[in-house]
Structure formats: C-alpha cells, structure tokens
Design a protein around this nucleic acid. Structure first.
Lengths: 361, 361
DNA sequence: CGATCTTGTACTATCGTTTGTACAGCCACT
DNA sequence: AGTGGCTGTACAAACGATAGTACAAGATCG
C-alpha cells in the first residue's frame, strides 16, 4: 500500500507518536546545544523509535532557515567533463561530507558572466562558502566576493593573493624542462593552454625559466596557447608543425589531453612519438599510462587538492586566515619521452635513461 | 567599506525601503498567483528599484519551505570523473536550468549503499525528483522510490520498466557487429563492461545476437567483464590474450576508455592496432578521434540524453506518464578498425572501405 | 518537614517567504 | 445619493524546525 503520496513525516508527527512535544522530539533526535536540558534516556529512546518507525528525516530547508546554516558548499568549475576538475570535485565532495557539509557544483565554461551568475545562484541558496576551480585573470568576481565577505578558496588555479590550493605548477614545469634537457633536447615547443589559467601559465613559466637557465631559448612562435583538450592540443601542435624552421624534437603540453591531441597531429605528420619527437603532458590522468604509447607526464594530486580545498574553506568559515597550499608535483617518465621504453631505438644521439616513475595508488 | 558581514537584504528591508508591506513587495517581485491582486505599476516599479538598489535576492530556503517547492533535481552518477556521465550531467544541468530547476549531483561509485544514502540525503533536501545515472541490477532502491511515490527517471542505463532515457545500445552493438562482419572478421572478443550495467550488457547482447545471426559464435571466454575504464580494458584484453586458442582479429570494447586500455595491451603484445587487430569502442568520447590511432566507436548523444532525461522528469512531475526514450547510436569508423585509413596495409584479405563518420558539431 | 535545587518537559517566538482574506478607497451605475 | 464592484494594499497565518525561557515534578538539604 503506497503511503499518502509525498507526505514525509514531520517532527510534529514524531512528537505525537512518542507522546512528547516537538521541542522534546527535536532535542531527543539531535544533540542539545546551549543551556537547554537534554531529554531523559527513556524519552530519547521513545522518540528515536518513533522516528525510525515513521521514517522521519529532518527537513533541511526548514532547519537551515531557522539555524541560518545551510551546511552547503558551492563549487565552480570550468566544466565537469574535464577529467581533472571532476576528480578534484570528487575530493571536494568526499571531504565536505566528512566535515558535515553537502556540495553543489556548477559549470561555468570559463565564461565570466556564467561564473558570476552561478555564484549568485549558489549564494541565493545560502551556501556557506565557495570553492572556485575556474579562477581566471578575467572578471572581477573574486574581488567582489571578498568585498562582500563571502568565504571562498581557489583550487587548481590561483590568482592574486586569494587563499588557494594548487599544484606547484612552476616546479612541475621545471621538472619537465630538466627531464628534457637531461635527454639532450635543444629544440622544444610548448603547448601552453589558455592564457588566463594559472595552471598553464605557471607550468609554462617554470619550464621556460629552467630552459633559459640552461642557456637555451624557445622562439616565441613555439609557445602556443589553446584549449586544454585533445582538439585544442592537436590544433596547437599543427600550428607548430606548420611554422617555418626545423621541427622541435620535444613538446611539452601543459595538459595530458592536449598532449594526446598533439600525438595525433605528430603521427599525421609522419613523426613517431617517443622516437622522432618526445612529448610530455601534465596531470597524469588515468589514461596516460594505458595509451598505446604511454605518456610521460607530471602527476598532480587532484583528489588531495579537492580535499585540502575543503579543509581550507572550513578553516576560513571557522574564522581562521589559513595560508595557501602548494602540492608537490611528480614527474612520471614513460615511453613518449623515453626512446628506451619505446623499444630501444633512439632518435639521434643516445640518451641516458633512468626510471623515475615509481607508482603509487 | 565592507557591508555588515553576511547580512543579505531580506524582503522586509525592500518593503521598508519602498514604503510598502512585505506582502506587496513579494507580489511585486514575483508574478502573482491565485486570486490575489497584483500591485499597481507604480508600486511594482518602486519595489523593483529598491530590490535592485539593495541587491536583494530571494532566500531559496525560506521560499522553498513556504511553497513546498525546492525547484531542485538530484542526480546520481557512478562517478563524475567518468567522462560520459559528466557529459550527461552537463546536459542535465543545462536543461534543468532552462526548466527553472537547479541540480545537485552525487557520486555513488556504483555501490548500492552509497546509492541509497545519497538519494536519502537528496530527499532530505526536498529535491522534487531524481535522475538516476547509475541504475543497476543490484539493490532495491528503485522499487523503494517507486513505492514511496518519488518521481525519478533513469538515464544512460535502464532497468526494469522504469522510465528511462538511454541510447539504443542493442542496436549500437549490432552496428559494430555488422561493421566487423563486413570487414570479414571471424574471430572476435568482447570486453563487456560491468555485468550489472545495462549499457554494457545491451551492447554486448546486440553484438552477439547479430554475430550469431551471421552464423558465427563467440566462445564464452572471449566475452570478458570488467570496469569501464582504461585499466579495466587493459586487464580484460590481457585476459583474452592469455587465453588459449588463436588470437581474435577484432575486439569490441563497450566503452572507449576500455578500448584505449585494450589498445595498450595489444601493443604490448606486439600487435598492431588497426592492422593486426581491429578494435571498436563505444561512446565517441572527444578523445577518440584525436588518438594516435583514431578509434572506431559508436557515438551516443550524451548531452541530449541528459536534456531528455530532465524533460521526462519534468513531465512526470507534471503528472504525466511519459514513455521511455531510446536515442539512436551512430557508428564512426576510424583507423582502429579500418586498415585503409591506417596507411593502406591490410590485415589478411582486403576489405571494402566506406566512409560513414560524417562529423557533426 | 518545608525550602531550595535539579531535572525533564512544554510553551512560544522566530528564521524569510508566500498566500488567503480583510479592508479601505474609488469609480460607476441606477 | 446610496449601493455594488473593483482595485490595491496590509494583516496574519502558515511552512518545519530550533532555542530561550517558564514551569512542574522529584531529589536534597538544614
């Protein structure tokens, strides 16, 4: 027999069933705060039983209205179909749950207007804080939020002095440069991602600084911006290939998917990835190790980033002013930049080989 | 100068500023329903102006409490870092917004307990309906929801007679079988995905039925179950390669990421994808076309699936009993199953070639 | 054995919004 | 000129839960 449709039990029903007042029912079900007294053990037991029997569950809308606490955190991402951000969100969701919060998430497609609109909707829902995964140099949302006193943290990308949890992208870029220098490369191209995202620009900067420190240069037309996906990587790579001058022997793509797209473009141009051209990506997406030509890349602790983001935000909600967090990157060398792994044949001079990619899981 | 921290304007403040009652302010800001009368044009204008000036925005908690309408839809997914589900969610979010709803989403990791727990939390938040992207043969959540009168639709996977929006996976499997038969393959393996998910099992069934109809059989140990990701695909492929008997000349993986993992395993075994072994995936993820060896696959309209899911749910909320929707799949032949595209060399006998993969965007 | 303290419970106001109804003013009509 | 119909506004009661406080009963003390 179906229940009367959509009639969830209210606290009043529980109280009635247990023969107590709503107040007592409320206090029996959830710990007592403040100076009020707790119901007796017997009463508590009766209320609990009644609640279980009637399938009671608290109405979060009403509860939140009264307590002025939504226990809700909002997250903004460029888009969830981006594996990296989706993974970060998984970390956010997990940590938020542990901390007693729920989360909502919205795609902003890196559009400042969307970003603002989605943030406002979340604030209408009285989220207690925001986790911003799409911080960008454009738009004034962050300054505005700060002025209004809305608690927030950045994850993945940083900008300005706002509290952020990011990978140490400058170091990551440097690791890649060191690796490629170590393998004897001199002509290199960088697929640098979107110019407004710190992830791409920091990785690029770290790379170029290290490269320059080794006394080598990268011509300006060999640093190409483009979207963080396979199609974007393919296009950017194609632009490099179409440019005049000798082809690069190594490519650094600041994103694995862009790297995969670039692999396609290289192959179409008749070049063998890992032999004629080395390529290194960034993020170590789960796919990277499983590709036909496994992709060298830099691992970033994405789940961890999400978790730490929530922790930081919770600290801020508790009134602290925590410092930003930089998570260490880790180079994973695979066949795409290591001719030895690809089958022994070397491209040009033989490179020294050393295994760095110790797996963790 | 910072506003008094965290003090959003309430309707009362607007009313005061405009010199009217809260009632009138409420009616001026949002259309009037029922038998009540609308404020005059002048009043409405004054209220609107005050609201804009004070930066008012309705408190959804309070509003929802009073109206008993949260305008919130909940979606359950196995995990958002699964590209396919993330894309479906993008469609859901978009359509929900157009229909005046907001959405929340939760990962269930295909765990029945998580699934139930997350659904309950959403119902506590008074979501008006659920979009279930992780329907499985296990667990009794759906029957339970139905009994309780909770409106829901399934997307991506179907089960039982519940209203669902899915791809026509049986037909999709058949398309792949026809393609491989057409190319003259006789020995085939199927990487069939998780046994509890209709996506995998329907695609497998469609494939096997068509294959059988052509008078060919697939030995039981050539139909291997496993996770829908690259690592799962690699493992499943490895199991096929390790089995006794002659190697298959074609592989159907019911998921693109599994197909990519399988490509890795094949390559490790010294087999050339697209020449020695044909491989076809499923979903046409954006990566598939950009791979070094572009992957043949079956395109499923994922965004559309999400959108239609919301439409169906909204119809249900309006009291209708809409029929399930099957979206047509589309075969995209690329180099991984077409030796001509791979560079002219054929594996065994020459196959007829025909281009089917007209792009849309 | 009466006064005080403790303990458990209920009463009541409140969060911000919406909505049924009451009411005051105004116009037009007979 | 009196009545009826409109119109625009305000009052007050919800929605469901929580928190401060008041109050009744039992325990404890001199």
């Amino acid at each position: 027999m179906p229940d009367p449709p959509h009639r969830r039990a209210r606290l009043k029903d529980i109280a009635q069933a247990a023969g107590v007042s709503v107040t007592t029912a409320s206090r029996a079900l959830h710990g007592v705060t403040g100076g009020a007294r707790a119901p007796s053990a017997g009463t508590t037991e009766r209320v609990r039983a009644a609640a279980a029997r009637l399938g009671y569950s608290r109405d979060q809308l009403a509860s939140g209205l009264r307590t002025r606490r939504s226990r809700l955190l909002g997250m903004l991402v460029p888009r969830l179909s981006d594996y990296v951000l989706a993974t970060i969100y998984e970390g956010v969701e997990e940590a938020a749950r542990l901390a007693g919060y729920r989360t909502v998430v919205a795609n902003t497609y890196d559009d400042p207007d969307e970003q603002r609109a989605r943030a406002e909707v979340m604030l209408d829902h009285r989220v207690e804080g925001l986790i911003i995964g799409d911080a960008s140099e454009r738009g004034d949302l962050l300054a505005d939020l700060e002025r209004r006193g809305v608690p927030f943290v950045l994850v993945s990308r940083r900008t300005g002095a706002h509290p952020a949890v990011t990978g140490d992208d400058v170091t990551g870029g440097r690791l890649v440069a060191e690796h490629l220098l170590d393998r004897g490369h001199t002509r290199v191209a960088v697929l640098a991602g979107e110019p407004y995202a710190s992830t791409g620009s920091d990785r690029t900067r770290g790379f170029l600084e290290c490269w320059a420190a080794a006394g080598r240069t990268v011509p300006a037309d060999r640093v190409v911006h483009g979207p963080f996906d396979a199609a974007g990587g393919r296009q950017a790579m194609q632009r490099v290939l179409d440019a005049p001058g000798p082809l690069p022997t190594a490519v650094f793509a600041v994103n694995d998917f862009a790297a995969i797209g670039a692999m396609g473009a290289l192959r179409d141009a008749g070049l063998r990835v890992g032999q004629d051209v080395a390529i290194v990506g960034y993020n170590d997406v789960s796919l990277a190790a499983e590709l036909p030509i496994p992709l060298s890349t830099v691992a970033t602790p994405n789940l961890e980033m999400g978790r730490r983001g929530v922790e930081l935000l919770v600290e801020i909600l508790d009134g602290a002013r925590p410092a930003s967090v930089l998570l260490p990157p880790r180079l994973r060398v695979r066949a795409s930049s290591d001719p030895v792994q690809v089958g022994g044949k070397t491209a040009g001079q033989p490179y020294p080989t050393h295994e760095e990619g110790e797996e963790e899981r």
